[in-house]
Design a protein around this nucleic acid. Sequence first.
DNA 1: AATGAATGAGCCTTCATTCAT
DNA 2: TATGAATGAAGGCTCATTCAT
Lengths: 219, 219, 219, 219
Amino acid sequence: MPSPVAEKTATLRSRGAAVRRTAIVNAALDEFIEKGFAAARIEDIARRASVAKGTIYLHFNDKEQLFEAIVKQEIRPKIDAAAAIAASGGSLRDFIEGTLLPVLDEMAHTKRGAVIRLLIGEAGRFPKLAEVYYRVVIEPGLSAIRMLVRRAKQHGELTGDLFLEFPQLLVAPLLLAVIWKGLFERFHSLDVNRMAHGYFEGVLQKKHANQSKSIKKGR
Amino acid sequence: MPSPVAEKTATLRSRGAAVRRTAIVNAALDEFIEKGFAAARIEDIARRASVAKGTIYLHFNDKEQLFEAIVKQEIRPKIDAAAAIAASGGSLRDFIEGTLLPVLDEMAHTKRGAVIRLLIGEAGRFPKLAEVYYRVVIEPGLSAIRMLVRRAKQHGELTGDLFLEFPQLLVAPLLLAVIWKGLFERFHSLDVNRMAHGYFEGVLQKKHANQSKSIKKGR
Amino acid sequence: MPSPVAEKTATLRSRGAAVRRTAIVNAALDEFIEKGFAAARIEDIARRASVAKGTIYLHFNDKEQLFEAIVKQEIRPKIDAAAAIAASGGSLRDFIEGTLLPVLDEMAHTKRGAVIRLLIGEAGRFPKLAEVYYRVVIEPGLSAIRMLVRRAKQHGELTGDLFLEFPQLLVAPLLLAVIWKGLFERFHSLDVNRMAHGYFEGVLQKKHANQSKSIKKGR
Amino acid sequence: MPSPVAEKTATLRSRGAAVRRTAIVNAALDEFIEKGFAAARIEDIARRASVAKGTIYLHFNDKEQLFEAIVKQEIRPKIDAAAAIAASGGSLRDFIEGTLLPVLDEMAHTKRGAVIRLLIGEAGRFPKLAEVYYRVVIEPGLSAIRMLVRRAKQHGELTGDLFLEFPQLLVAPLLLAVIWKGLFERFHSLDVNRMAHGYFEGVLQKKHANQSKSIKKGR
DNA sequence: AATGAATGAGCCTTCATTCAT
DNA sequence: TATGAATGAAGGCTCATTCAT
């Protein structure tokens, strides 16, 4: 075991490195969102992260790797959390209300949504990005949804195979909200919460009719 | 050049000019889709359109105006056509099956979808683009849908105010399909037609129960 | 045939292009000599040639092509001229005195020698350069020398097969001179002309003994 | 640290330091040869020498000093040895056959030759290098040759003052061989040994005629 | 002495835009 | 109108050197 001093040193170093890496990823995220992938300048990212330009290349080989790191840092944790909750066995309604809606709300109002817009725009030209995203986010996400839908069917929350076959449909309003907020909110505001509640009530309505009454006013 | 000959020449010229303009817009569309807005090179657009680089600047002030022209040329006609059909008084089901599904299918499989992905990615940095798109596409499109939904409610095709308040939800699967096709199709194929049919059956199901049975196999 | 005006235009354009190209090559030569290949900056070359940086890339794909152009422009003509003289049938002595010695003298005192030093230093890392040089200069040059040596043997100017087998030896003092002038002249001056005369007298001495007396004082 | 232990440590340290220094110079030599002076990276040199980048700067102030160290370590010993032999009183023929030809052979086939090519290419830009080389290699080398030539004249091995005045000519084929091997060997192989033997036979032939017959086939 | 993370100046190359023809 | 050569600003990336540990 190294001496306390040595350990402190080592710890500081590695801790410093991790902190720096995170700072760079955060800065890159902000710049990419503001300028887009191609137009974002490494120099600006560096300045925002309070490091020198060259430092970025100590952590990432190129711009593309920065993008990857963003997806892994910003989106993956949400997916993991959602998947864990899905696996823990609650009802679909609980999942939607306790997890999907809050996530949607957050997506629509924070950087995370911007990451998705960014990805949609850039993935065509950077196939690796789409691949990372599919593997890290889409695949596990859809798997979790399928599991939930299956259970929901057994419990009578849901009928039909539509959402089993196309689990994407369950997050379609999420996509819609993220895009709307990013592109058109300034022309016409969208009450994401209210829209999502309405949508999911429709989805789950088989069990209890007239639930559309219970749509809560969005924040 | 007031002589008939000169005039003919002039006519030919302007006809040639219009042809050229269209060729440039088409070439720009292809390049933007392949490379994205920032990465598309004017020189490649010129080559594809068989004109000189400088010629593009005789028709468009800059790259951004090219983007605008694309939206107007590629998307607006579809919207206009759909709006006309919506206004002409058919049922919502007819509209969905006769117009929305074909459009969706086309979007998912042609350049038009790519334009939308392109816009999603670039609009953040080019606000004018989002504005043009909103005014030319979104606003008229949603108005048409609202009109249809209102009529559908009167005819009992639909209950609840969800789609009146959030007409976007009716095109959510369209968005989903366009994005999926562009980003993830190579990892996992999506039967757009089948998904859309299933979705709209759910939407319209109030009237005739169990219609989910009738989902047709997509092309 | 185009109109005079058009022709003039075209001519001016292409003439201008050729002039510019030459100016760039000359500037590159100077910079490469002063700084070496790797350390020479495109911007400085451009400034020296009175063109914009980008203009260089209209004529050459990269730095390496510039180097190639230099070899072709600076060295090849000398080789061609020497080869023509060699082929025209004079004696070896005439060739040496009328061609080789003047060339050597010029090489030792002008840029051309620097090109050779440059090549020696850089060719290892830029194999294409060595190849170009071998094909354009060495191969034809040695062929011409062989032809001359063969004829000289028939005429009794020369005995033995040494210079037939190793024609390079005939230009060894040239190489020596070029390198000495470039590297060590400031420490100890070398009378290239006198050295070369002495060397070639030795080579040709078979015919007339004691010609070493006739060494002339160099320039 | 005056204790025996400390001193031992210190000794080990300085011994380690010397080893390290040599390792660095060797690594630098390899890298310079492969990449050239400007393109060689300190980091690669460090890795090759199994030291950290910073360590190099504990031994050498900058890249240039590394180059100097190479010349001193790789070339000087050969010169010193040759000078000693020259001074020890053998005949010119013995010197050529016992020393010059083996050295030439080695130069042509090992790193030492590459150092010379390297120097030729870089000396223009790093005058100090040329100076070091002149002082350490050229000057003493030529002095030794002059001494030998003078003795050879007295012994009748040689007539004329050519090689006294231009001792460089005696090593011209060496230069030629080193350059040919480095630049053009892959296009056309050169039998260095055979060429050198032939050359020196010509130089020494005054005494015994027809020695060109005795050219030995090179390895 | 040794380390290697951090720095930041430096440079090749690209490309939107201009303009002489 | 059309051309395409010329421009020059911009930016990704490299790497010699420094310095805190």
